[in-house]
Structure formats: C-alpha cells, structure tokens
Nucleic acid binder design. Structure first.
Length: 595
RNA sequence: GGUCUCGUAGCUCAAUUGGAUAGAGCAACUGCCUUCUAAGCAGUAGGUUGCUGGUUCGAUUCCAGCCGGGAUCACCA
C-alpha cells in the first residue's frame, strides 16, 4: 500500500466532488512539526478552480474528506495549507503491509538494463580520497538502481597505457635495482606510485639543470633524459617491443594486485573490466568511418577533427596528425564496444568528476552525430571535487590523502573510541576487529555519501572520524540497539505475526512519526535513482534513525501491559531495523547486530 | 576573456524541485543512566539565504546585473 497514492486519489475525489473539476498534480508534502497532522495539501494552486480564497478552498476539501473519506481523522487549515491527520487504523495497516512484505525496499524488475561505470583509475599510482568518493558513489548508485528494478552492469575502464605508466617504468628502470612488492614488502600500487614520484623529482631536477644551461622551459621539458626515456618506452610499447611490454605487464600486475586489495576493503566490485590497452585502437576505425561519411573532417596536416561550432562548442581533435588516438577517440570506441557487449542496456552512466563535463558533452554529441540513438541515454554522473581543509589535493605537493591509509585510520579510530566506551565485553578479538572495520568504513562511506554528489565537498579528517550525530555509526548504533530489543523479545518468547498488529487501535505521536518515514522509503528509493543521489538515502536513513530514537526514548516496550501494543512496538522496531539495514546496504554500508 | 558551476548559523551540510516562522549535525551552554545499549534523548543560543533589482498570492529556489570562490576552453588523460 502506498499512502501517498491513496491520499492523492482520495483528494482528487474530493476536489472533483466539491469543485466539480478534475486536478492532476496535487502538491502533497510532509506537515511541519509545529502543526498537527502528517500530510499537507498545498491549496494555493487549487484556488484557480475553486475560485475561492486559499483558506476557504482548504476548508472545503478538508470538510469533504472528513465526511466522506475513511482515511482522514482530522484536519486543520493554516493559511492555504490543509493539514491532514490519518486514522490510526491506516497507519496500523501500513505497518501490517510492510511487515508482511519481505521485499519492501525492492521495486520489482522493470525489464531494463543499465550500465554504470565508476572508479576507472590510472595505473601509475595508488587510489586516493577522490577515488573513494567516486567508488562509493558509483557503487551506491548501482545499488540504488538495482533497488529500482534495473538489471545493473558495473564496469570500469582501466587506463593502463600511456605516458603516465611509462614514467613509473622509466624511473623503476633507472633507480629500481629490481625492487618488487615481494622484495620490499610494499603494496604493488604503492610501489609503482613511489617510482612515479621519483620520476617527477628527477624530471624536475633535470629540467631546471637544462634551463640553467640556457635551454627554454619547453626545450628542457622535452630533452630531460628521463622524459626522453619515458617517451621512448611509450613508442616501443606501441611497437610491441618485447622487453618494454614485459616490464609494462609486470608493473601493471603489481598495481592490479594492490587495487584488488583496496577494492576488496572498500567493498566495491565490477562485473567487467575494460582495459584501455585493449580498446584504444577501436575508436580509430570508427573515426575513419565517420570521416568517410563526412561527419568529421581532415586538416592539411592529416589530423582528424569534429566541428561542434553549430552546437555552441569548438572544434575537437579526434586523431593526431601521426594517426595516434587521443582520449576522446578511445572513449568513442569503448562506448560502442560496451553497447555491443551488452546489447540490452538502455543507457550508460559515467561516474566521473565534474572537471570532465566538457569532455562528456562532446563525447555524447559525437556519438549522436555518428547515429547512435542511445547517445541521448548516456549520462555523465558528474560529482564535485573533494577539498581538504588545507585546500585542494595536489599529488605533486604530497597533499593527497591515500585511500589505504585513510581506511586504516578510520578503522583505528573506530577501535580507539569503541574501546574507550568499554563495549566489548564477551566479544572475541576476531569479532571486535570486524566491528571496528564495519564502523570505520561505515563512518567514511557515510561521510562521503551524505553530501549531494554534484557539490564540491570538504573532507575534514577530524569531522570524518566523528561517530556521533549525522554519521554512519549513529545509524549503525540505532540498528544494534533495535537488534537488542528483538533478541530480548525472542528470549521472552514474544513472537509477532502480522495479524497481531491489527489489534492495535491507537498510536503515540512518536510511533506515527516513525511510520510516516517507514512508509515513504520506496519513494525515497525512486527519488534517489532519479537524481543519482545516495545523499537522499543517507539523509533518509538519518531521519529514520532519529525518529526511532525519539520513540525509543519516550515509549517503553517491555513494560507495556497491553500485549497488542507491546507486540506492535516490537514489530515497529524490527521493521525500522530492516529498513535501516536496507538503506545502509544501498550506500554500501554494513550494520552490526551489536556495538 | 568565453562557457559552466557554487555562495544558506562560527564550521560541515539540508530544505519535498516555487510553498508555512529556512532545518540538522558539530562546536558552546543546561538537564536526563536503579528502567529495552547515554555512539542516545530533551532543551537554550546561533540567520538581512553574497549584494541589488525583477517576475507573483508566495523566491534560498526562476530571470537580469554586480561581488567573491571553483572548473573548463590541449594533437594531456
């Protein structure tokens, strides 16, 4: 039962009856806490058909509902707002329906498939804080789409070739002395990242020396020996030189081993990985075809371009004069390959930072020009950068927050605070460690997901390890506390079956508040998908936990003498726990049975 | 400079897409553990929503112009 739909139809009936007119879009919203009621009809828009003042209009609708609808128990009018109270039996019925539905929070399969790309790192350095936002966001949006009835394919493109990895390779060749993850005990992605940093330092030293010798900045940049080596490696790689390819394979394999560990700890996964080294040539052919069809044009030097001036954009290069492909070319190829690999997908979502908005605007326009009708169903899930209190993260200045380090710090902080609270009696060390991990990562994920993805956000380390207030652990704690109630009910031999609930006829305000939120869960799931926003789920889960805590604090359960009410409250608690768990699952966050 | 984007309490974020007296958390202050887990609850204080106009019953939201951040406009990815 969907309360909103029920109310909509009741109100539509009322409007038809009272004003002899039909209305399609009703503005129904939650009632402000200061007024009585749960649902509010905004009546200003109705004054056009009622041809009466807003208050009079509201009163007439309210009066009709009270007299003719079995749903409304009371109403009041404040200005043009009609505040409605529902019969408690409606709320009881709502809980009954939800408690009887094991799939509440999972909207039935809608027959649609969708692809969601996220993560997509370069393979020359380890993952950092920015990747965490990307991964948690992409994973969560995937879960949200699954909950909306979509068949979701999670993929990523790994940028495994190019000058960036050659830089690490060059530095390792010069300074590595054969160092491996095994020989040094360093995680593979960190080891490769270390040589990327060494490259950068060496490169800077060499260029400034060359500049001191009288070269221009441009010349020095190109002639620095280590850069010459890296460029040579890139060339050799493209010519499939055995030694270079072997080195490339070895170092990439180190990175993948490291990434796998990081992804595992983050709790994210992928159905299929695309590698740039496999796909970078694909786009070329398609561009050549486009050239033949006259969609693109060639300049005198042989480079191929697309003209987007009629779309308000510039000209964009697609193939260099030497015939090699650029980033855009690869993305064209990859996009088309994906629709070939997954012919049933209706669209594609690219989880990529907002600094690439222009790029995707261009990409989608090109795909459209090439005649792919699905181009308009490609969506750039553009999210804002993560700033630090010290400003922007800059890898060159060593201000990046490493993903592995951060996850460990969150774990350690969760451990510290949990031990201080002395909550680990009778808990084994293994279970305790699992709990710290759950809390630490829960805090981190929630912190990054509670903000609207579109917005740039600030990552304050001190705030992120908070476990009180608007945080993941607050919600996890609420869940754990409810589970204690459920266990107690079981130990007392109290078993609730949905039929028992109907024996309850009156409710407390705190119970209604919780029920209001419970019954709006699926609307939130839809809204979150429509907006690609886990923040909507995060805010919802927090609201629900808060509402439950108010109930928990003000209304006794086991000392209640009325057995029906007692059972009702146990069922309400259990349902809240279920929905909290489900909501958090949509964010990729686990919840504990006790903490 | 062109295009895009953001500006809300001391700080970090919300605001049902144009609705009520703009809400939470943190930080500060005051209460509540003999009762189901106090990682909790209740309360106090904190605002000219960057500024100026406009659109209308009604604007944080839409429009215009300023002010101030950020992104982007590479034969980089």
């Amino acid at each position: 039962m969907n309360l909103d739909l029920l109310l909509q139809s009741e109100i539509q009936k009322a409007v038809t009856a009272v004003f002899n007119q039909t209305v399609e879009n009703l503005q129904l919203q939650a009632t402000n806490a200061e007024f009585e009621g749960t649902h509010t009809l905004v009546c200003f828009p109705l004054t056009k058909l009622s041809r009466k003042g807003p208050e009079e209009t509201a009163r007439m609708v309210g009066e009709y509902l009270l007299a003719n609808s079995g749903v409304i128990s009371k109403y009041n009018v404040v200005k043009g707002f009609l505040n409605l109270s529902l019969h408690d039996s409606i709320w009881v019925e709502a809980l009954h329906a939800i408690a009887s539905d094991p799939n509440y929070g999972q909207i039935p399969y809608n027959g649609q498939e969708i692809m969601i790309e996220y993560s997509s790192p370069n393979t020359n350095k380890p993952l950092h804080l920015g990747h965490l936002r990307n991964n948690f966001l992409g994973y969560s949006v995937s879960e949200i789409y699954k909950a909306n009835g979509y068949n979701v394919h999670k993929v990523q493109i790994i940028n495994d070739r190019g000058i960036h990895i050659c830089k690490s390779m060059a530095a390792w060749k010069l300074f590595g002395n054969g160092e491996t993850p095994q020989s040094s005990g360093t995680k593979g992605d960190h080891l490769v990242g270390k040589y990327y940093v060494i490259f950068d330092k060496t490169y800077k030293a060499q260029t400034s020396e060359l500049i001191a010798q009288g070269l221009t900045e441009d010349e020095a940049g190109k002639q620095a020996p280590i850069m010459v080596l890296a460029s040579e490696m890139l060339r050799k790689w493209e010519q499939k030189d055995t030694e270079t390819v072997e080195l490339w394979k070895m170092m990439n394999s180190w990175v993948y081993e490291g990434f796998d560990a990081t992804y595992k700890r983050m709790g994210v996964d992928f159905e299929k990985l695309y590698f740039e080294s496999d796909t970078y040539l694909l786009g070329k052919e398609l561009v050549m075809q486009g050239l033949e069809k006259g969609i693109f044009f060639k300049k005198e030097d042989g480079s191929v371009w697309v003209d987007l001036t009629s779309d308000g954009l510039d000209q964009k290069v697609l193939l260099r004069a030497d015939g090699t492909s650029v980033y855009m070319t690869q993305d064209i190829g990859t996009a088309i390959l994906r629709f070939t690999d997954f012919p049933k997908i209706s669209g594609q979502v690219y989880t990529v930072g907002n600094e690439q908005e222009y790029h995707f605007k261009v990409l989608f326009l090109i795909l459209n020009k090439l005649g792919y009708e699905w181009a308009k169903r490609c969506f750039h899930l553009s999210y804002g950068m993560v700033d630090l209190p010290t400003g922007k993260m800059k890898s060159r200045e060593g201000t990046v927050v490493d993903a592995d380090d951060l996850m460990q710090e969150m774990h350690d902080e969760a451990e510290k605070q949990t031990r201080e609270l002395g909550k680990l009696e009778g808990v084994s060390e293994t279970d305790a460690q699992a709990l710290f991990e759950m809390i630490g990562l829960g805090a981190l994920k929630f912190f990054l997901l509670k903000v609207d993805p579109k917005k740039r956000m600030l990552f304050d380390p001190n705030e992120s390890i908070q476990l009180q207030g608007f945080t993941g652990p607050f919600i996890q704690y609420t869940h754990a506390r409810i589970k204690a109630i459920v266990r107690k009910a079981e130990s007392l031999g109290i078993h609730v079956n949905p039929q028992d609930l109907r024996a309850v006829t009156t409710l407390e305000p705190a119970e209604r508040d919780a029920l209001y939120l419970i019954s709006s869960f699926e609307n939130k799931i839809r809204e979150a998908a429509k907006d690609y926003s886990p923040a909507i789920i995060a805010n919802y889960a927090f609201e629900l936990a808060k509402a439950y805590n108010q109930f928990y604090q003000s209304i006794p359960i086991f000392s209640e003498e009325n057995t029906s009410k007692l059972k009702f409250r146990v069922a309400l608690s259990y349902t809240v726990a279920r929905i909290i768990k489900r909501s958090m699952k949509l964010l990729g966050i686990e919840v504990p049975e006790r903490m």
